[in-house]
């Protein structure tokens, strides 16, 4: 399976979105912190590209890409990060809680690993109601060391729930390189202790991600239970906006930039004759324009009124 021009477009939209968010920070238009996913776009685009309507997804605080890949509108996601009333969560959630139930994006979570039990529950509901829906949950490499990971994968395995666990292994848990926190080199190996398939994939190759996701999603939908996918990728930015990532060894970033997922896909499409340089340029230009127009719209929206702050605690 190889990526398509549509995948390139989806990845570029995420790339430009994240670049814009970084810029908004420097203009002091975003509060708190944010966690960007430049360099990891092939993972959510490849995985969510294999989902069907009605499927659901939970993700991490580095989840802008995943929520956009589910189909949430660019402007309403910008709006949320800008704290606008028109944001997907009405300005109550922000960057780390992007949630758009209308596209199955059930929540970005700011607590490492906490999105896993919730995904397991969504899958339990699908199994119970017989909807045939599948739930994907994204987690970082660091989350494989938190208890909720073990509890969730174990529970999903014994109940054969339709859930796919996708580790976005971006090589760092906050500032710590994986090898300093984790005694196994292949996180997919952890699947063995739950009796489920563990699959390693090049997370910068959207076609490879799609192929692995298709198998895992089909397995889940068929009632055969969960799969643990490890997508090997790289966080091109620091952990959060305050992190210059000076801990990276010399040459590491450059090596990964040479395998940038967007560039890889564009090159492949060219090699395969699937797209002409002019078509690629058109896709690039359209993605840039869509993002920039969405941002302009979101910036024009009002902030939520303080009098609304009590709304929505209880149903």
């Amino acid at each position: 399976m190889s990526g398509s021009l549509a995948d390139l477009s989806a990845m570029l939209r995420i790339r430009h979105f994240e670049d814009a968010v970084r810029d908004l920070f420097t203009r002091d238009l975003v509060r708190g912190s944010t966690h960007l996913c430049q360099g990891q776009e092939a993972v959510p685009v490849g995985v969510c590209g294999e989902l069907a309507p009605g499927d659901t997804m939970t993700c991490t605080y580095r989840g802008h890409g995943a929520v956009l890949a589910m189909g949430s509108p660019l402007d309403r996601c910008f709006g949320e990060i800008l704290g606008r009333a028109g944001g997907v969560c009405g300005g109550r959630g922000g960057s780390m809680h992007l949630t758009d139930a209308s596209v199955g994006a059930l929540g970005s979570n700011a607590v490492v690993g906490a999105q896993l039990p919730i995904a397991v529950g969504a899958a339990l509901a699908a199994q119970h109601l017989g909807t045939g829906a599948v739930t994907v949950t994204f987690l970082g490499d660091g989350a494989t060391n938190i208890g909720a990971f073990h509890e969730s994968v174990n529970l999903a395995a014994i109940w054969r729930l339709p859930v796919v666990f996708v580790i976005e292994n971006n090589q760092y848990g906050e500032y710590s390189p994986l090898a300093t926190t984790t005694p196994v080199a292949r996180l997919a190996d952890r699947a063995a202790s739950y009796g489920i398939p563990g699959v390693f994939v090049d997370g910068n190759d959207v076609g490879a991600v799609r192929a692995v996701a298709a198998t895992a999603v089909a397995r889940a939908r068929a009632g055969d239970g969960p799969t643990l996918v490890e997508a090997d990728t790289y966080r091109q930015q620091g952990h959060s906006r305050s992190d210059p990532a000076t801990y990276r060894p010399p040459g590491e970033l450059e090596r990964w930039l040479a395998r940038d997922p967007v560039t890889l896909l564009a090159d492949r499409l060219t090699e395969q004759g699937a797209a002409t340089p002019a078509e690629l340029d058109a896709v690039r230009e359209r993605a840039r324009a869509e993002v920039s127009q969405a941002l302009e719209r979101a910036l024009s929206w009002p902030m939520p009124h303080p009098d609304t702050r009590l709304e929505g605690v209880y149903a």
Binding site: A114, L116, A119, V120, L124, T135, A148
Partner: peptide, 28 residues
């Protein structure tokens, strides 16, 4: 057994699964 389920000793998974199932329309 579909509606009355024994779980492992996994309180985070129990509460989180109840939450996730509720998001999708069950009343756990």
């Amino acid at each position: 057994p579909q509606r009355v389920r024994d779980t492992p000793i996994s309180e985070q998974a129990i509460v989180g699964a109840a939450l996730g199932a509720a998001l999708m329309g069950l009343r756990p």
